[in-house]
Design a protein around this nucleic acid. Structure first.
Lengths: 185, 185
DNA sequence: TCGTGAATGTACCGATTGGTACAGATTATG
DNA sequence: CATAATCTGTACCAATCGGTACATTCACGA
């Protein structure tokens, strides 16, 4: 596939934040235009498929980031315990210590799940499986590893919801530390 | 306050489902009308404040339901361990074994949080505090009780997100059983 | 300096949004 | 039956939605 204009790449993080803050349907072309400083002409030039293509590009970037920065290290780091610790630290940074919301989680709860269902499931499954792998390599019995991983992935999502519901971002860090204790304890 | 027409009460559960499925902004008057079988005239007669009043009424019903069926029993049941078990069973039933989403959680993640922020926080705080109370009465040290409660409330939200992301409602029941083990173990 | 294609802003499209106005139907009360 | 209050459907409103069309501007190679 032909390389898209460079500007496109720069837009994706902005689009990500807009989708995070407003959700898929809530992210109108008006607010996207305002945040990117671009008119519809430019937006549709970079993303001929409109909003759907924008969201798809954002999802692709997120998938790639998590694969590179979380899943692969969890699977491949020779020190699985260190990898688990590092992955939780990266998670805290990525979600801005609870001030940022998980776009995939938001999508999962909304109507857009029908549109991106496969990729949403893949994002979560990738996380769970990578964590399962690390836990197993750290000595956990396979079944227990998978259970713990499933629990941790869900707990992270829940911590993001709760931190936002309480309007208390610090809750996210507390949750991550509890999760780390459970995983490594 | 004067009692609203009886029809109003019957509408609220329907409105709740619509808001759950579509979110606040996604629940257009068109779909609300279709689901309730009522025209705008009737809807605005029952809820002069429009969508905001509808959502507010739904939230009020949810708050009351949780207070009556979860929070108060957790605080008052002389057998706190039985109360915790019962509250988790009620939770599984309420969320239809993971097929139903938490409206308050959905609101917390969306833009509507600005509109209902206080009540969203109160819903979560009520849950956490009631569970903290039961755990303390069951013999947990106060700090540990509160931590466990916070973790459990977040975990329930996370389990709902994950169950929907994986499109695997059974995950919710699994999570609840793990939570029960942690709380009572 | 010119030409060319990419990049961009703007006007516009039909559809839909939340909300209002109001006339007519329905119901309860005398 | 008559009258009044309560409901309810429909037509309508301005604003906004996602998306298209197109004329203009821009950067850059020949």
């Amino acid at each position: 596939m032909a390389p898209r204009p460079a500007g496109r790449a720069a837009l994706i993080p902005i689009l990500g934040e807009v989708f995070r803050e407003h959700g898929y349907e809530g992210a109108s072309l008006a607010v996207i235009g305002a945040r990117t400083g671009l008119g519809k002409g430019s937006l549709y030039h970079a993303f001929p498929g409109g909003k759907e293509e924008m969201a798809s590009a954002v999802l692709a970037e997120i998938e790639a980031w998590f694969e590179d920065n979380l899943y692969r290290p969890l699977r491949e780091d020779p020190d699985p315990r260190a990898a688990i610790r590092a992955s939780l630290a990266a998670t805290e940074t990525y979600f801005r210590s609870g001030r940022r919301v998980c776009l995939v989680g938001v999508f999962a709860l909304g109507e857009v799940r029908d549109r991106f269902g496969e990729r949403i499931a893949r994002y979560f499954a990738g996380w769970r499986d990578a964590l399962t792998d690390a836990l197993a390599r750290a000595g956990r019995p396979p079944g227990e590893a998978r259970d713990l991983a499933e629990e941790a992935v869900a707990a992270i999502q829940g911590a993001l919801v709760a931190a936002r519901a309480f309007d208390e971002p610090a809750m996210f860090g507390r949750s991550l530390r509890r999760i780390e204790a459970r995983l490594l304890g």
